[in-house]
Amino acid sequence: MASEWRGRLAMATCVGLAACSAEPLPAEEAPSPTWTSVYDSDSLGSVPLAAWEAGDDVFIVGGGLGNGAASLVLRRHDGAWSRVEADGMDTLWWVFGQAPSDVWMVGERGRIFRWDGRVLADHSYATEATLFGVWAAAEGDAWAVGGSPGKGTAAPNDVVLHWDGTSWKPETLPGAARGEALLKVWGLSKDSVFAVGENGAVWHRRDGVWFDERAAVAAGETLTTVTGCSANEVLVAGGQTVVSSHDSTWTPISIPTTAHVVGAACKGLESDLLLVGTGSLKLFRSGEVWRDETFHEPYGDFHAAWLAPSGDAWIVGGDYFTPAENGQARRGAIAHYGSPTRALPPL
């Protein structure tokens, strides 16, 4: 019952904020940032699952998750959206770039693409595992992780791949195989890389050696994301768990929501943090102050967030939880937080 009242309180707060925003602003004040629903439809047939922005370029990737839709790669360049052709029907789960001319995308069945500013090159790795995460330290130094959730050691799991500038090579984690899918990877530097996944798995690669930090994080549930917040801060999250590491000390963060956290983005734990997840979860933190916009439009089950240095944010998601249903188009959602943005044109 307590959780229900928290939900009602959040809604009451929303109502209050909505009432305030209707008042005219003083002339000298800039308009408040606002949510824009850029896409909320099943017209693409695919679910957008990850977003990455740098300068004038935004990349959004996704796919049909077994429903027969082609791999989804959307690019916004100088304000204009286009669809980048990607061979195949494998869903792409993540995108990360070093620069607008060096962007990695990974997904089902070991699918890996690299955007060089003009075309997508296929760098796929031979595995039946889904690659859920990718992060790059430099042009010749990138990491991808993945696995086969729920299938233990009977299927490819504990998958860690490293790009050394010429090819993707597997890395073996220490100890016996865990049979766990790794869902995201992030590095604070080339010498400090984190990977998280099923059953609260947390691996930290320090100076070339992987260390198991699961016990220190003590999530007790699947961690779906890891993101860097500053040069020495990283944050892992999933479900009701949010834990930050500052100079290698893990500290749990109490979150004012009962929603299921799936994605996170931040610029610095002392400044902006954005958590997204199921049930339209959109939870900002600035300093020690939380702002819950869950009951504001846009609505949907969000999977990932990207927070730009300006404070603008992209969140993406849709129907990414339910299993495939005979070619039925999946609904997807893309939303932007900041100055008003144009909707996605028909593509």
Partner: peptide, 12 residues
């Protein structure tokens, strides 16, 4: 009930 795309066992 069974595993979702990112693991865990769920009824829906």
């Amino acid at each position: 009930y069974g595993p979702s795309f990112q693991g865990g066992s769920w009824a829906m």
